[in-house]
Amino acid sequence: MLPRVFTVAARHEETADTFTLELLAEDAADLAFAPGQFNMLYAFGRGESAISISGDAAEPQRLVHTIRAVGTVTRALAELAPGAQLGVRGPYGTAWPLAAARGRDVVFVAGGIGLAPLRPAILEVLAARRDYGRVVLLYGARTPGDVLYAAEIARWRARGDIEIHVTVDAAGSDWRGNVGVVTQLVRRAGFDAAHALAMLCGPEIMMRYTVVELGRAGMSPNDVHVSLERNMKCAIAFCGHCQYGPEFICRDGPVFPYDRVARWFDAREL
């Protein structure tokens, strides 16, 4: 699949190393996607990276990606100013199980940049709020300055129909929120574990222990879905770069039912 050319329409700084790009297609065609899917973003001459779509699936004419600058490609993407161009292949991958979540309580658990791939799912649930039971968002970040979408989280909270707990690893004395790991928030959240569905995205170690806490609260691993964001290259199950046991994240994921990948979480070498 050849990349389509997109132009940066806007750029927002989220945190010290994370930014959001709003992109418009040169061919003006929509890029329809399902929450949870990703694109391969191509910084011309520098390389390609898998980046989840963090925009609103109801607005497919405007592609939104939130990116953390960690290495060659993501730093090249960080240099793109409004008007600059990049290549986009996609969308690829599996989606969050929003249809299966209808009528049930929904628990979103995000860590760090992991809120970005969950954002389209949260937006879709909030847009059809009456189709779901209680909705909870538990979000952990390193420091208050690393909290993504802080203004939007405040707006979600003000709606009163989503329970939100944000925690950080450490904070200055002016922080009024939680300090501690996100796994500890599971206990605070009000949801019916027997009829809930959880969607997790964040560091693997965080997801592993969150599943343990959800289990303690009475939730079955069948009802937990995780997004695995290990590095990948081709995105078409060819190169093996993102192989996770027998699964290719690019073809079979990134969103998996937890029980399908549970044993790979504990494996040392994959």
Binding site: G112, Q184, G202, P203, I205, M206
Partner: peptide, 21 residues
């Protein structure tokens, strides 16, 4: 245990296991 998890600085090393971190 919660403090140990924070010691891994997991958000800075998202794809990593404890040992990688």
């Amino acid at each position: 245990h919660a403090a140990e998890l924070r010691l891994t600085d997991m958000y800075a090393n998202p794809a990593s296991d404890v040992s990688d971190a």
